[in-house]
Design a protein around this nucleic acid. Structure first.
Lengths: 204, 204
DNA sequence: TCCGGGGCCTGACATTTGTCATGCGAGGCC
DNA sequence: GGCCTCGCATGACAAATGTCAGGCCCCGGA
């Protein structure tokens, strides 16, 4: 038998992380060498233990799974990343793949299946949940231009146009214009609905 | 030794549910008699198995944990409810307690601790995570009147005033008035920021 | 080279939204 | 009863937002 696969587990929910560690330990060929509850902690643990596979939650305090994946890719190219997420938005998947992530699955996956997937990515293959992939494809690419997306992000917390204009160093009219065109492209009634839609699709 | 505590586990994340079931099974005095992935499923399972304790996720498709708890209280008063949540908003705790929930903890709790809490609520005691309780107290009661909250909910998806007015069967001016007073009470710049704040505090 | 298209940026104008003064009815208090 | 406060409801006015036509610059194709 070959060496056991060394796994890093990162999730801010202690409940799921501990339970998962216990279940994965039941698998003969998997060994959890480190656990982390935050993004920075995950990076530190990865540096310290150089795991074969990193199982990362998408939503963590400090730095999200994709950012951790980006760092890992640069510092530990041999470490394969598998992202696990509760509420998968299409755009996240795209960002994750761009960051070199090898696997992307929802938390509705069973532990048994997850163990299989850890082996899959460790073997050098990729795996993306079919349903999430379908969502990402049907959502397609963002139709927004760089400025439109930028302005929309600044508008995300409901700030008035004047404030957005200041933060983006643009005239108010310009900001209104981008907001308007973004809303039109997304088929939204106004910028607030546009923000909501863009969020859902992971475009901001 | 007394009878084992019969537990119902409801969570839409298969990963956490399965893992948790496995871990709780390691406890001698606990037995998981049913699992569910949605609100309605949880209710059906509860009726079928009449568990001693129901461990419910707050966010589930179909009906959230609090709604399930309300139903359970009416139909199975003997069944104690323990709510587990990922991102606890102050208002949810209040609603949960009003629904007769006996325990309320974040998912950052360890499985070991959760097992203890299941015994605690089964014994008839209550337990609320101290940090969540502190948040709820500092956030205080909602300052919004019934109509203000109602209108704010209708405004949640960024709909224009005309649409809100129609849905709430009010004049447009009236809707604007409620929106304005709600925003003022919450210290928000406009209704959209108000919606965001109210969401954070769990008041809508 | 010279268009044409697309992204970026702007101010002027129409529409929507937020604020204010006001009226009405239901309770609590003297 | 008389008085006050508070929530509910409305329309008029002021301010913020959305829409439009147009100018500028860069790049790729004719």
């Amino acid at each position: 038998m070959t060496e056991a696969v060394r796994v890093l587990l990162a999730d801010d929910e202690h409940l799921i992380r501990g339970a998962l560690a216990a279940l994965l330990s039941l698998e003969e060929d998997l060994v959890v060498v480190a656990e982390a509850a935050t993004g920075p902690e995950a990076m530190a643990m990865a540096r310290a233990h150089a795991p074969d596979v990193a199982v990362l939650d998408l939503q963590m305090p400090g730095a999200d799974g994709v950012r951790v994946a980006t760092t890992l890719r640069a510092e530990l190219p041999a470490c394969k990343v598998l992202i696990v997420t509760s509420h998968g938005r299409p755009g996240h998947l795209k960002r994750a793949l761009a960051a070199g992530v090898r696997g992307f699955v929802p938390k509705t996956t069973s532990a048994q299946r997850l163990a299989e997937l850890i082996r899959t990515v460790h073997a050098g293959n990729r795996y993306v949940d079919p349903e999430l992939a379908a969502d990402a494809i049907s959502a397609g690419d963002s139709p927004l231009t760089a400025r439109e997306a930028e302005v929309l992000e600044h508008a995300a917390d409901g700030a008035p146009v004047a404030e957005i204009a200041e933060r983006a160093a643009l005239a108010e009219g310009t900001v209104r214009n981008y907001l308007s065109s973004a809303a039109t492209k997304l088929g939204a009634e106004n910028r607030h609905a546009a923000v909501r839609l863009a969020r859902e699709r992971g475009w901001v």
